[in-house]
């Protein structure tokens, strides 16, 4: 009977040998980890997408300081979130559908998704959890939603919304456009066909870096990708399409390219709920396109 220490040494040797032999195979093997990476993702398998979705909604709950519906509450609230919409409203012309999305949880309503109390216990219990609709007010509070969005991107790198929403908050409330760009590039690598990420990147160039040329190129590329993916769809993503056209018009106007602006405005008019307003914009652009009669330029 060999000594137990000898057996232990033998077993340890076998373990180390196996580990060194398996290591190159492990590195060579792509498997389902390709592109997703990360220990967490490998451990959680496909369920990581559920966690990613959950963390994304968690970020929205943080945006509302904990006031958030559960599966039991009135489901009038769309699961599409308005974390990134509130501040955007001030900057971008919004389609009415988008406005509707933010008004469903009206801050003016006392009870929001909870509805009026059903009984005394329900009324009493509302003292003990956030039961008023609020949004993160202070600039510094905005950072609180970021961990959940970051976790969401780690767990599901193909969840484009997590990148765009996180980038929005980094860029607008926290004033860190470079970090936002870095995150969006990471998202772009995992989702090379995402027109949403290109739109978000374009906005950084347009609004933070003040580089309309680069922004225009990104928007144009995004528009091509949009057409490639959405043309022929029964319900195309018109919200992003409108945003893309709107920003293209803006950068064209900044660059003085009125002819192209007219082209995009014409496209925008077709899908706009308020075509008369767009027509007025087209007329204004056309007026700038036609040079006003004046003295002929002299020789240099």
């Amino acid at each position: 009977m060999p000594s137990p220490y000898l057996v232990l040494v033998f077993l340890l040797t076998v373990c180390v040998s196996l580990a060194t032999w398996l290591q190159p195979h492990y590195l060579a093997w792509g498997g389902s980890r390709t592109g997703d990476g990360g220990l967490l993702a490998t451990l959680l398998g496909e369920s990581r997408r559920l966690f990613a979705a959950q963390f994304f909604f968690k970020a929205d709950a943080y945006f509302h300081s904990g006031f958030y519906p559960t599966i039991f509450d009135n489901q009038i609230v769309e699961k599409e979130l308005h974390m990134s919409e509130e501040s955007e409203a001030a900057r971008t012309p919004r389609p009415p559908e988008a406005e509707a999305r933010t008004t469903q949880w009206s801050p003016g309503e006392d009870y929001g998704f909870l509805g009026s109390p059903k009984d005394w216990l329900d009324r009493f219990s509302r003292n003990f959890f956030p039961s008023r609709h609020t949004h993160l007010e202070q600039k510094s509070e905005a950072r609180e939603i970021l961990p959940w969005l970051r976790l969401s991107t780690w767990l599901d790198p193909h969840r484009v919304e997590s990148y765009t929403v996180a980038a929005f908050w980094l860029r607008t409330r926290l004033g860190r456009p470079e970090l936002a760009a870095q995150l969006l590039h990471e998202g772009w690598r995992a989702n090379p066909d995402s027109y949403e990420i290109l739109l978000a990147l374009g906005r950084i160039d347009e609004e933070n870096r003040h580089d309309p040329v680069r922004a225009h190129n990104l928007y144009a590329l995004a528009l091509r990708k949009w057409h490639r993916q959405q043309d022929g769809n029964a319900e195309p993503d018109l919200y992003t399409y409108r945003e893309l056209l709107g920003h293209l018009v803006l950068v064209d106007e900044k660059q003085g390219d009125w002819a192209e602006a007219v082209q995009y405005l014409t496209l925008l008019k077709k899908i706009s709920p308020n075509p008369a307003a767009i027509q007025r914009q087209i007329d204004e652009a056309r007026a700038k396109l036609t040079p006003a009669p004046g003295p002929a330029p002299g020789p240099p």
Binding site: Y62, S140, R143, E144, L146, P147, W148, R150, L170, L174, R176, L179, L183
Partner: peptide
């Protein structure tokens, strides 16, 4: 110990 976006003031999570 995990820092998100190099911001160590994030507290709520």
């Amino acid at each position: 110990s995990v820092t998100f976006f190099h911001d160590d003031r994030i507290a709520r999570y």
